[in-house]
C-alpha cells in the first residue's frame, strides 16, 4: 500500500512534452558546447607518474616543511613527494591496480573535505613566503629569484573499487577531489624548482609541504606547463601516477603509457571537466 502511494505520487510529478523537447534541445546544446571546448579530446600527459624518478631526485637532498596537521613546523629529511596528500586522501596509497585497466566512465566526482580556496592558499603562501624560501635555500635549492604561481590546483583522485559482487561493471572507479589540497608551483626566475602543497585540515588549519630535487621531472613538467600556458588543464591521480588532461593532444612521455586508462571514455577532458578543478597556467 505504501509502495503504491509513493510510486503513484512520484509518477504524478508533472512532465509534459514542452519539458521533454526543451530538455532534449538543451542536452544537444550542452554536449555541443562541451565538444567545442575539446578540439582534439585525446589527452594525456603522465607527469608525476615517475615516483621512482621523483624518489631518486629527492633522495639526494630533501626537506619537507610541514605545518599541516598541528600547526607546528617540522623538517624531515629524505622523504618528499610532490603528489601525495598528507592525509592520504588525494594521492597514492589508494590502490589502483594498474595503468592498463580502463577507468570507468565518469558518472560523478565527489568533492570532499574542508575547502581550501585559491585565495586562502595564496594568502598562506604570502604569509609564509620567507620560511618556505629559507627552507628551500637551506636545502641547496636556488631561490634567489623565487616566485610562487598565482593559482593552485586540485587533483581528481581515481580510486578503483573492487567489490567482487557488484555487477554494475561500469561503476568501478570512484572519483573524488580533496578540496583541502592545492599544489602551487615554485619558480626561481624562469625555472621550476619546487612544488608546494598547501593543505587545510578538518579544523580549518592551513599548512604546507614542499617538494624539490626532482630536476628532470620538473623540467619536463615545466615544459609542458609553459607549452600549455593559457589553456585549461586538469590533473588526475591514478593511484600514485599523476595524469594531466588537456583539451589538445600534447604528447609527453615520462615512461608510462596511460592511453589504456581512457579506453572507456571518448572525451576524457570533458568527462572530468568541472570548473573548480580546471587550472589555467
Amino acid at each position: 500500500m505504501e509502495t503504491e502511494k509513493i510510486k503513484n505520487s512520484i509518477d504524478n510529478i508533472a512532465f509534459n512534452s514542452d519539458t521533454s523537447d526543451r530538455m532534449y534541445d538543451n542536452i544537444q546544446k550542452k554536449y555541443e558546447s562541451k565538444k567545442k571546448r575539446c578540439i582534439n579530446p585525446r589527452i594525456i600527459i603522465p607527469v608525476a607518474a615517475c615516483a621512482a624518478l621523483l624518489a631518486v631526485g629527492v633522495s639526494v637532498t630533501g626537506i619537507v616543511l610541514s605545518k599541516a596537521k598541528d600547526g607546528r613546523t617540522t623538517e624531515t629529511y629524505g622523504i618528499v613527494t610532490t603528489t601525495v596528500d598528507p592525509d592520504g586522501l588525494a594521492g597514492e596509497g589508494n590502490g589502483f591496480a594498474g595503468l592498463n585497466i580502463p577507468l570507468s566512465p565518469v558518472s560523478d566526482i565527489l568533492f570532499k573535505n574542508a575547502v581550501l580556496t585559491d585565495e586562502e592558499g595564496r594568502a598562506y603562501l604570502n604569509e609564509n613566503f620567507g620560511s618556505i624560501k629559507s627552507s628551500l635555500s637551506a636545502s641547496g635549492v636556488s631561490v634567489s629569484d623565487m616566485k610562487i604561481s598565482e593559482h593552485g590546483y586540485y587533483h581528481i583522485k581515481c580510486e578503483q573499487k573492487t567489490s567482487a559482487d557488484y555487477d554494475v561493471t561500469l561503476d568501478l572507479t570512484e572519483y573524488s577531489v580533496n578540496q583541502g589540497f592545492r599544489d602551487y608551483l615554485v619558480y626561481n626566475g624562469d625555472t621550476l624548482v619546487s612544488i608546494v602543497t598547501v593543505t587545510k585540515d578538518k579544523d580549518g588549519r592551513v599548512g604546507s609541504s614542499v617538494s624539490f630535487g626532482a630536476d628532470d621531472y620538473y623540467r619536463s613538467f615545466d615544459k609542458f606547463i609553459k607549452q600549455n600556458a593559457g589553456k585549461e588543464i586538469i590533473f588526475l591521480y591514478v593511484g600514485n601516477v599523476e595524469v594531466i588532461l588537456t583539451n589538445d593532444y600534447a604528447p609527453f612521455s615520462v615512461g608510462h603509457n596511460v592511453s589504456p586508462l581512457f579506453e572507456n571514455m571518448r572525451d576524457p577532458f570533458n568527462a572530468f571537466y568541472s570548473e573548480s578543478v580546471v587550472y589555467v597556467a
Partner: peptide
C-alpha cells in the same frame, strides 16, 4: 522544475560524453 531539468540534462550529457555502453 528548472533545477530538475538542468540536472537531468547534465546526466544525459554525461552518457554522451562518456560514450557509455551498458549491459
Amino acid at each position: 522544475a528548472a533545477d530538475a531539468e538542468d540536472c537531468a540534462e547534465d546526466v544525459f550529457v554525461k552518457v554522451l560524453s562518456n560514450d557509455l555502453k551498458f549491459n
